[in-house]
Write a protein that binds this DNA or RNA. Structure first.
Lengths: 202, 202
DNA sequence: AGCCTAAACGGACTTTACCCCGTTTCGTAT
DNA sequence: ATACGAAACGGGGTAAAGTCCGTTTAGGCT
């Protein structure tokens, strides 16, 4: 197999031991979060429990936040699958407004379910988890545009992203894993989102 | 003077040396920020340069973020004065919608001017700078209510707060102090805010 | 003036994220 | 199979936040 067929193929595939260790570390991290709570997951502790060196942990994930980002990533990808190719109204097929409403509620639920880990994936200095234009921002932007012309589309998309994700990432503190409270908060913010969007597009 | 006249007077006034040290530390912190950039202001460095013990620094401010919060506080108070008793449309006297628009633009400008320090006043674990319901949130809530009845008032207030402050606190990364770029970003987000509010209340 | 106590102080200590670099291993080309 | 270079590994080292507790001091009381 000639590698040169791949136009800009990554310089090299990831080594087998690297893959194995990454997965082992993620599995171990999940265990530790479940047992100790996210605050008490330390890099040393993780390395020791995984039977690996500290250097390896950092090489794999770059930073503490990097681990939680990686952990979120799997669920995040699944979430996006529902948005991209799941059933309406979250997936394609419904009216854009309906999709926007559904997206908001689904996203709020997602963030509530991943509250601790999403917050832990913050990184001092970086804008916020992933890259600049988050998937949420892009999706909101696309739906807004489908709904109709609007001034300041890009700015609005940024602000709606913040309106949707910001509360759970920074304003609403939810120390405990209280299922009832979570449902309540989700409904509370979901209703507000619906009002916001309905008024925005009417 | 009998202290018992004061109903719930604080148990005791702050000691003179404490006041002196607090102010000295804030002054020193400002110098260090100007000289080194906020990232390179460390607690050890600050204590040493101020000629005080590290314990004193922590006693005064609680945490690294606490220093930046204290630093912001002075400017924040001045900002609030303009909102509470300054000339319209930011201050009272204008229509609520006008005030909301003016508040957004003013707040964006304020946050751009204090971008680095506002971000540094984050604290892992705490909701966000000050207490739970920020002044911004309360003000937005009040104006919305004056504009007219709206469902999910409290939730909307939270989300609009995030829409306003979130981008500058976490989504928009602005590494450099480029005046031109700042003005541009401010206008960009200000216009979006205006669109958002106008559509929300029409 | 002298006493007394709460508050403030200082700096050594602990914890934790993150860096560095010599050593080991993987995977490929011969 | 062997050799070799790149990648991965390990764990000691560093820096910085935050804690602890013995010592000092401000300032009210007698």
């Amino acid at each position: 197999m000639d590698r040169s067929f791949v136009p800009f193929g990554k310089p090299r595939a990831e080594r087998a031991d690297a893959v194995r260790n990454r997965e082992h570390l993620l599995r171990t991290a999940r265990e530790m979060i479940a047992e100790l709570g996210i605050e008490r997951v330390t890099m040393d502790g993780l390395a020791e429990r995984a039977g690996l060196g500290k250097g390896t942990v950092f090489r794999r994930f770059g930073s503490r936040a990097g681990i939680f980002r990686a952990l979120l990533d799997a669920d995040e990808r699944r979430f996006q699958q529902h948005v991209i190719s799941g059933p309406p109204p979250l997936g394609p097929g419904a009216e854009p407004v309906e999709r926007l409403l559904a997206y908001g509620r689904a996203r709020i639920t997602f963030l509530l379910d991943h509250h601790a880990i999403a917050r832990a994936s913050f990184e001092r200095g970086r804008p916020v988890p992933a890259g600049d234009p988050s998937v949420t921002q892009l999706h909101i932007r696309m739906l807004l545009r489908q709904i109709g012309p609007i001034p300041s589309l890009d700015g609005i998309a940024i602000q709606l992203t913040a309106a949707l994700e910001g509360p759970l990432l920074l304003y609403v503190s939810r120390p405990e894993t209280d299922v009832g409270l979570a449902a309540e908060t989700g409904a509370f913010l979901g209703d507000a989102w619906q009002t916001l969007i309905e008024r925005l597009v009417r």
